[in-house]
Every structure is written in C-alpha cells, then in structure tokens.
C-alpha cells in the first residue's frame, strides 16, 4: 500500500511554499488576491454580527418601535443577561435541538451512505452512464420550496400514489383502509422529512464523491487485483481511505446545511404533529420574525454559533487525525 499513498500525496499537495523572489511584488499581489473576498464578507457580515451580538444582551422585542433609530446596537436599553438565562430553561428549545440533531445524524447518514453507493455505481463503466449521471443530479436543481411541495404530494395519506399503493397492499390482506401516516404521526414525520431532504441532497453527495472516485488512478486498482485482493478489501483498504478527506468535507457541508433546515418543514408539517418536527432554525425564525423576540432569537443564534464552531473544529480535527492514521 505504500506506493498508493505516495501516489496520492502527489495528487494532493499540501499548501505550497511561496516561491522565492519578488518579495515586494508578492506582498502586494497576495493582498490583491485575498482582500476583495474578505472585504465583501466583512462588509456584509460585520454589522449583522455585531448588531445581533449587541441586541442579544438587551430586551428589545417587537413593539419596541423603530429598532433602527432608537435601539441601534442596544443603546438606550439596559444590558441584561436574561435572554441567555432564558435559553437555559427553555424546554422547547431543547426539544427542537433534539429534533435538529436527529435530522443532522439521520440525514447525513442516509445521504452519505446512499450517495456513496450511487457514486460507486456511476463510477463503473457501462453504456448510458452519462444519462444516469444527469438524471441523478436533477433533484438538487429544484428549489427546496418546490421539493417540499412535491414531498407533500408524494406523502399525502389520502391523495398520493403512495397512499393508493398502501391501500392496494392493504386490501390484499383484507385491510382496504390501511393508511400510512407519513406526515401526520409524531413518530413517522421526522423520518419522512429526512426522506424528502435526502431525495434532494443525495445528488450533492454523489457528485462530490463521484469526483473523488474518479480521481483515483486506475493503476492502483490494477496493482491490488494483481496482488489478489477481493473487491471488499479493495474498497476497504484503497477506496475508502482515499475517499476519506473528501467525505469529511462533504459530511461537514451537509451537516451545516441540514442544521439550518427550515423550508421543507415549514411547508410539509409546519412543525407538527405536536412539536415533533420543529427544527432549531424554524424556532429561531418564529422567535425573530413571528413573535418579534429579536433579542432572544439573537441570543439563541449566538449560542448556536459557538456550538457549531466547536463542532466543526472538533470534526475537522478528528477528520485530519483519521486521515493521518489511514493514509499515513
């Protein structure tokens, strides 16, 4: 396997050393490259970030009138910790956090596993490969709003083809009124939402992973087969390790996005039945825009921000370590 890893590191060099010479030119140029992007990010984010941080220590709520002029950055309001105190005792916040955690874990697991499987299939050589590759990308192109409506059409327990299928199966067993409560029962609905989200985003995983698979030089496989490796051990000892870095990025990106899931839930269940499908960001959305508790929403967001930063850092660190262990 040593040859394999050597080959790999030549495909993916680490951050390169700057070349020598032209120091002054370089210093100017390197700023030119990075500055525009950083500037636009700073410009667009610094006010929202500071404002949210400031307001999270106030009691500004809807009805406080004219937030812009009077309450800029919380001036003219008592500084208070009550929003942060409140979120420690907010049972519903914990409920929605649990739901969201479920979405992230279940969603990423389903999407990564299925996405990887399909990427492996598409990596084979067979007639019609391009057609399937294009077809499999389609769901990603649909706006989540439309996906959610499509999901409601698919999983309606009376008018959907699926419902009819289930009724048909039911009548074979003498249960013509058999129904599946995809979106109407608290124990099913979160799974249904994961299914809808997965339908849309498995292509994203497939795309990234397929790209990674295609970067693996064919000779590595040839060499392994000559050594008499079984398909399973080829996957486990060659494909998977090589795919680890890209998997980590793909999983991180998807986790961050599922973490912010809202459109699909708002349209399919509105958070019901009960509170079974409500997500964190939906809760924040309601607090901020429906209830007008801007300051509390900002406080929740900041706590989330810290948690996500910690999570991402830890995740990337673990990923790097795992990568080091498998790929040397």
């Amino acid at each position: 396997m040593a040859a394999t890893t050597e080959k790999l590191s030549s495909i993916r060099p680490l951050v390169s050393e700057p070349s020598t010479g032209g120091i002054h030119e370089d210093r100017l140029i390197k700023r030119v490259f990075l500055t525009p992007a950083v500037t636009i990010l700073l410009l667009m984010s610094i006010f929202p970030l500071l404002w949210s941080l400031g307001i999270s220590f106030t009691n500004i709520e809807q009805g406080s009138r004219q937030i812009v002029t009077q309450n800029f950055l919380g001036l003219g309001f008592d500084v208070t910790l009550r929003n942060y105190e409140r979120l420690l005792t907010d049972q519903r916040l914990f409920d929605v956090a649990r739901n969201t955690l479920f979405y992230v874990i279940a969603g990423v697991t389903v999407q990564y596993t299925v996405g990887f499987g399909i990427a492996l299939l598409l990596n084979q050589d067979f007639p019609g490969r391009t057609v399937f590759r294009v077809i499999f990308l389609l769901p990603m192109m649909m706006t989540p709003v439309a996906t959610a409506y499509a999901g409601r059409m698919m999983f309606d327990s009376t008018f959907s083809p699926l419902a009819q299928l289930i009724r048909t199966i039911g009548s074979l067993f003498g249960e013509p009124r058999l129904t599946a409560s995809w979106l109407t029962q608290a124990s099913w609905a979160p799974w249904t939402i994961v299914l809808i989200d997965s339908w849309q985003w498995i292509p994203f995983m497939t795309l990234l992973l397929l790209a990674g698979l295609q970067a693996i030089p064919e000779e590595i496989y040839e060499a392994a087969r000559v050594d008499g490796a079984t398909p399973w051990s080829i996957f486990w000892h060659i494909t998977f390790p090589i795919m680890l870095p890209i998997s980590i990025t793909a999983i991180l990106i998807r986790s961050l996005e599922i973490f912010k899931i809202i459109d699909i839930i708002r349209i399919t269940t509105g958070g019901g039945p009960g509170t079974a499908t409500e997500s964190l960001v939906m809760y924040v959305f309601n607090q901020a825009l429906t209830f007008g508790n801007y300051s509390y929403a900002a406080a929740i967001s900041y706590v989330l921000l810290v948690m996500v930063v910690v999570f991402s850092t830890v995740f990337l660190a673990i990923g790097r370590r795992a990568n080091k262990r498998v790929n040397g």
Binding site: L34, A37, V38, L41, S45, F47, P48, L49, W51, S52, I67, V68, L256, K260, I262, L280, V281, V284, F285, A288, L289, Y294, A297, A298, S301, L304, L305, V308, V309, S312, T313, L316
Partner: peptide, 26 residues
C-alpha cells in the same frame, strides 16, 4: 482565515435577516 471564511455560513439566516433589512433600508 479559511475557517473564518466558512464560518460565515454558520449563523441561522433568520437572525441575519433583520440587520440586513436595516442596512438595506438605509
């Protein structure tokens, strides 16, 4: 720097909407 850049995607958009609207209104 790279981590700071990706971290711009961490905050729930619902919270950013209001300050965005303020600047945009201004």
């Amino acid at each position: 720097i790279a981590f700071w850049i990706i971290s711009q995607r961490f905050l729930p958009p619902a919270v950013l909407v209001i300050p965005f609207l303020m600047i945009y209104g201004f």
